[in-house]
Computed example of a mutant assay.
Amino acid sequence: MKTIVLASGNKGKLAEFQQMFSKQGIDIKAQSHFNIGDVAETGTTFVENAIIKARHAAQISGHAAIADDSGIEVDALDGQPGIYSARYGGEGASAIDNYQKLLAELNQKQTSNRSARFRCVLVYMRSHKDPSPIICEASWEGSVTTEPSGQGGHGYDPIFWVPEHNCTAAELSAELKNQLSHRGKALAKLLPLLQQAGALS
């Protein structure tokens, strides 16, 4: 079975990737399995940060690597937190710290515009020297609620309203979320590209 390293320490993301790749006969292992720590995300875009993370994981593990850089963009906050979503509440902030800060800042704006989207960029690198990584991007449109709801998912899911299902992302089943989400859409684009490139064999 082919092993691909997921360049992330996020258990929620790992579960999503393992579920999506299990049908392909691919073993997705967290970077922690190879004693790989987080690398400084010094890029200014999702693409730059995903490449930095994938290259780091591939170099240390010796395996192909997938990195996901994703976040929530809130229109009334000029697209913030964006690439800073995971550390919006400060160093060591929890998911709850992050979304509570977002809610507080949005409430201060006193605006009726709460439109937002999750954005995801996936990068697959065959090795750390891969000169042409495979890159896919997707987004998931919704809005920010006034208070959290739901126990599922991770990150900002409890405050992300999914209008077509009349609930938050944290209230969706894992299977349905994987079909709708920014990450699920990006992965649906990535899989056929990996197959074309012979990366899954």
Rank of each mutant, 00 (worst) to 15 (best):
S149A: 14
Q108P: 07
V162E: 01
Y88V: 03
P148M: 08
S32K: 15
Y124V: 02
L191V: 15
Y99I: 04
A40Y: 10
S127H: 14
I36T: 06
F34P: 11
A197R: 08
L194R: 00
G43R: 10
V144Q: 12
F118S: 11
W140Q: 12
L102P: 07
L190W: 08
E16S: 02
I4H: 01
Q179N: 14
Q18M: 02
G71N: 10
N178G: 05
V121P: 10
K2R: 14
N113I: 13
G152Q: 10
K11I: 12
W140L: 08
A170M: 05
V121Q: 09
E91M: 11
D38A: 13
N49Y: 05
G43A: 09
L191S: 00
A7L: 08
Q195V: 01
D97A: 06
R119Y: 05
A86M: 04
A40C: 09
Q108D: 15
A76P: 05
E141T: 14
E147L: 12
G92S: 11
I36H: 05
Q108I: 03
I51S: 09
P131L: 01
F21E: 00
I26T: 06
L200K: 00
H63T: 01
A67P: 08
S8Y: 07
Q100L: 14
N98H: 11
A57C: 09
R119K: 15
R117K: 15
Q100C: 12
Q179G: 10
L6P: 06
A188M: 04
G71M: 06
L103F: 08
L176F: 12
K29G: 02
H33I: 12
E137Q: 14
I51P: 10
I66M: 03
R119Q: 13
K101T: 14
D157E: 10
A65N: 04
R55F: 03
A174M: 10
H56E: 04
Y156A: 02
G142W: 00
Q31N: 09
S115F: 03
S94L: 03
T146H: 15
D97E: 02
I134N: 02
E175G: 11
L187T: 14
N178S: 12
H63F: 13
S173F: 05
T44W: 02
A170F: 05
S8W: 07
G62A: 02
F17N: 04
S139P: 00
S22P: 07
L102E: 02
L14N: 07
I26M: 01
A7K: 10
A15P: 04
K129D: 12
S149C: 14
R119H: 13
P192T: 00
R114S: 10
K23H: 09
A15D: 06
F46S: 09
E164Q: 15
S149V: 12
I96N: 11
V144A: 09
P131R: 05
E175M: 12
E41N: 08
I134H: 03
L191P: 03
S94E: 02
D27I: 01
V162H: 04
P133G: 08
G43C: 07
D75M: 04
N178E: 03
G12T: 07
N107T: 13
L6Y: 03
L106R: 13
Q59F: 08
V121F: 09
E137C: 10
G25Y: 00
L180Q: 08
Y99F: 15
R55Q: 14
A54G: 07
R183N: 05
I72K: 11
I52Q: 04
